[in-house]
Amino acid sequence: MFASDRPHPLSDVPVGQTVRVEALLNLSAPLKARLTALGLVPGTELVVERRMPFGGPVVVRFADQRFALRRTDAGGIVVRGEPRCEFC
């Protein structure tokens, strides 16, 4: 169950949830380098837009850009939920 007060792997985050990146762990060196260049670094806010079925890629949006990541790679990104706004 996703709780916004503790860290989660990005792969567990439900669609529509806004989270903040805590750390990039367990990622291959090229992927880490690419994400770094794109500005996906600790502190970045991102939204999970879509999770493709059967364990397919996860689509995330951050800083006005949208990328698809594999579920296993998303598991290497540790995030923490933003408290949900009660009016949304």
Binding site: S28, L31, P57, L69
Partner: peptide
Amino acid sequence: GAPSMYLVEL
């Protein structure tokens, strides 16, 4: 070999 990098921009 190891799985490759997958990152696709939309």
